[in-house]
Design a protein around this nucleic acid. Structure first.
Length: 391
RNA sequence: GGUCUCUUGGCCGAGCGGUUAGGCACCGGUCUGCAAAACCGAUUACUCCGGUUCAAAUCCGGAAGAGACCUCCA
């Protein structure tokens, strides 16, 4: 339990940093043994379970006579039977494709619960079916998961729920694909495994620098969830810059002035954003549209485009709705929420401005360079000097 | 070995038969004391070989390469 809690906590920490909302319920399998035993009993009553040597198995062959086992993963049962490898302990099953609902524990096994069949533990597909039924009902809308769980895990879930409840449990399945590192799959055995904390701190030999949680989030959103995605320093660097440009537009838009006419079709842009998300959550297309918004914002600022007050409001809403609420991005810039820092910076910038007025560029450049070393960026814009912390 | 998926320009990544995806990098320009930021412009594609079609990155067949699953770890 202590080990599990450690990893649950570090998982929560990482998810919080990525600005991922916490679920309302995070049920644990070990806390739902009773529900799982009850579900096995229901499957028994339906006639799709059998006991063998203290363990209970699901009769896939019988199930497939009236149901399509393999419909989610596109597998054919006959192929599965002929291609199953010879494994130890298969002799308890009537058929190699049958899967465990309850396993009798070996003497050394640490998971031990009482059940009508033996002291043991539930089969590894069962907890998902039992817990989802308990908290979401016999039928619920969306079931997510990684592509690697598609078969056999999710296929078995479908069969179990169907057998126990007599109806389809899930309306839509969402499977996200795997990630690769420099074109190679990420795997502990390959030694190229990078965890989130290592991304955030940059402490990994494959990383040349640290990448902020929002950079990672934005990077992931730039690829479609169903495709594989390749991590590399170059790609992460590109995402970091792109995100910076996107977030900068949030500041820029606040200062824009409206005109009598708009040179861009903002309503069309909004529709394009909705269309992108409606097309199987096509976040890369959505982001492309958001960059169109950025372009418009910057152009209005540069007086090469104009925008009406209504459109300006709509544009602000688009950014807020799609970038913040839907994509879950947030501004990571450290604000100067400290009056002392503000006063000091104003003083320094004043001194630098004096030097510039006197054409003492050696001094003004030195101030800028030295500030850059402590991660403070100074920019001379038409509207005046702007400074902020580099994150 | 079996089943399935993928292969896009320097990098990442959309695309589902005809229309500029987008981001980053690079090059030229505008602006700037310089830089940064921003804007404008240019350039670089569709693994290979056949086929279907007026038209293919997109459909079909084949080859090569990569990946996932085929494990009572969830």
């Amino acid at each position: 339990m202590e080990v599990a809690q450690f990893y649950i906590d570090s998982y929560h920490d990482a998810m919080d940093m990525l600005n991922i909302l916490r679920p309302s319920i995070e049920p644990r399998a070990s806390g739902h043994i009773i529900e799982q035993i009850k579900m096995i009993e229901k499957i028994f009553e339906a006639g799709y379970a059998y006991e063998s040597n203290g363990s209970v198995y699901f009769d896939v062959i019988k199930y497939s006579k009236t149901n399509n086992y393999g419909k989610l993963s596109g597998r054919i049962l006959d192929d599965l039977i002929s291609n199953t490898r010879d494994l130890d302990g298969q002799d308890e099953k009537r058929n190699p494709s049958d899967f465990a609902l309850w396993k009798k524990a070996q003497p050394e096994h640490i998971m031990r619960w009482e059940s009508p069949w033996s002291i043991g533990f539930p089969g590894w597909h069962l907890e998902c079916s039992a817990m989802s039924t308990k908290y979401l009902g016999e039928t619920f809308d969306i079931h997510g998961g990684g592509m690697d769980l598609l078969f056999p895990h999710h296929e078995c879930e479908i069969a179990q729920s169907m057998a126990a409840n007599g109806k389809e449990s899930v309306k839509y399945w969402l499977h996200n694909n795997m990630i690769t590192i420099n074109g190679q799959k990420m795997g502990k055995s390959l030694g190229n495994f990078i965890n989130l904390t290592e991304f955030f701190t940059g402490k990994h030999k494959a990383l040349t620098k640290a990448y902020s949680p929002m950079t990672i989030r934005f990077f992931i959103l730039q690829a479609h969830y169903r495709g594989t995605q390749d991590f590399s320093n170059e790609a992460l660097l590109a995402a970091e810059k792109g995100l910076k440009r996107l977030m900068q537009s949030f500041e820029t838009i606040k200062k824009l002035k409206s005109s009598a006419t708009s040179t861009s079709d903002i309503k069309k842009l909004q529709q394009n954003c909705y269309d992108a998300m409606n097309d199987d959550l096509n976040s890369p297309i959505l982001i492309a549209n958001l960059f169109e918004a950025v372009r418009i914002i910057n152009s209005v600022k540069d007086n090469t485009e104009t925008i009406t007050a209504d459109d300006l409001e709509l544009l602000q809403k688009i950014l807020s709705d799609f970038a913040i609420d839907i994509l879950g991005l947030k501004d990571e810039n450290v604000a100067a929420n400290n009056d002392v820092v503000d006063d000091l910076m104003n003083l320094i910038i004043q001194l630098r401005q004096n030097a510039r007025t006197n054409k003492d560029y050696a001094t003004s450049d030195k101030i800028r360079d030295e500030l850059a070393k402590v991660k403070i960026v100074v920019k001379d814009t038409k509207e005046g000097v702007v400074w902020n912390f580099e994150n």
